[in-house]
Amino acid sequence: MVDKGQISDSEDEQLAHQAPELFGMKHGGEFSIPDGYFDTLPSLIQSRLSAQGGKSKTARSFYHSARTRWIMGTSAIAAAVVVILLIVLPATRQSNLPVTATADQPAAAADYADYIDESSIVDVMLAGQVPDPFAIAENNRPKIMIGNTAFTRDEIVNYLVETDHNDQLSHEDLGQ
């Protein structure tokens, strides 16, 4: 035990003034311990140390820290996957939407091409399950009357490309 002299006189005086009941109280020896306890304690500790092989707690600590790291690493990876999915999924869902053109934002031909490539519409059309929308669109396009005959715009263009008569027709004739 520590020598009573470590407590300064001023602290004693202060305690005596502040807490006379406590100051006047004797202390020490109020708890009982088994006989010879402190004679046997060092050998008890040494035997526990031997039983643990000197390093078992260290090994357990390593296991514990490794397990903690594994849990933390797995949690971090799981969190990263969730974040990536949250970012990627809405974008993917948007790209799967049919391309729609509005008056303000006409859809670019590339957008249509991408949409057609990504969707299975071409396969379905080739299988003959769905009518070709391009053929329908072509049929519905306004015809240009030359004389008494109605021509599509593509037919006229092809004719002009194949022959040299393009200078004989005005733009108005071509419907542009």
């Binding site: 009982s32 311990i33 304690l41 008890l44 500790i45 526990r48 707690k57």
Partner: peptide
């Protein structure tokens, strides 16, 4: 409690060793 104090004291010295 003595038994608790005994256990804890032993654990403390084992931790000191480790």
């Amino acid at each position: 409690d003595h038994e608790d104090a005994n256990d804890i004291t032993q654990n403390i010295f084992l931790k000191v060793w480790e």
